[in-house]
Amino acid sequence: MSMISLSGIHKTYRTKEVETQALENVNLEIEKGEFLSVMGPSGCGKSTLLNIMGLIDTPTSGKLSINDYVIEEMKDKELATFRNKMLGFIFQSFHLIQSLNVIDNVEMPLTYRSLSASERHRLAKEALEKVGMSHRLHHRPNELSGGQCQRVAIARAIVGNPEIILADEPTGNLDSKMGNEVMNILHRLNKEEGRTVVMVTHNEEQAKKTSRTVRFFDGRQIE
């Protein structure tokens, strides 16, 4: 059974003058527990695909289902709950909330669930321990290195125990040592906890270590 199923997905960006085809007839099945790399040159539609899978962008046409839920039939509140419970995002530029400290950033997805403050705090601490950041609970994002920020972002992505982790060039802003540390964490989450991981990357070495790689060019899946 597929965890994520994309069928005939098109995405077109329209401005007054130009129409840009970002994705063209993408058909893709991602199995539960798979670690999938998405590769391709800049502007080929990799991130757009990831955003559509993450329900933060909508396809122009086509069908997307996740864990057998047909997404287009869901309303805003259902989509929000679905994202909260099923999906965890990791962004290239971390996107931590600057006004919050580390523990509050990690707790953030849990604030949209009916959990007590102490329960949220416990879960957030556990997630930070998994990524080796439990010693920086009260630091603000601007007091952390890039690698530390990305580890906090991973903790935020996994704190709600989602089945799917979507990572958009998670090592793109990190040096190789930090990048390897982040990749090790993602592999551990995939292998030890059975989470499905979809990662957009430019790095062939990192892609080779994943269970499958799909390649895109000009919005089309070529491999």
């Binding site: 933060i56 805003d76 989509l79 929000a80 709950t81 994202r83 419970k85 995002f89 996107h95 949209y112």
Partner: peptide, 9 residues
């Protein structure tokens, strides 16, 4: 970011 992590409109 908040909406991506489950906050609704």
């Amino acid at each position: 970011i908040r909406r991506a992590f489950g906050c609704h409109r």
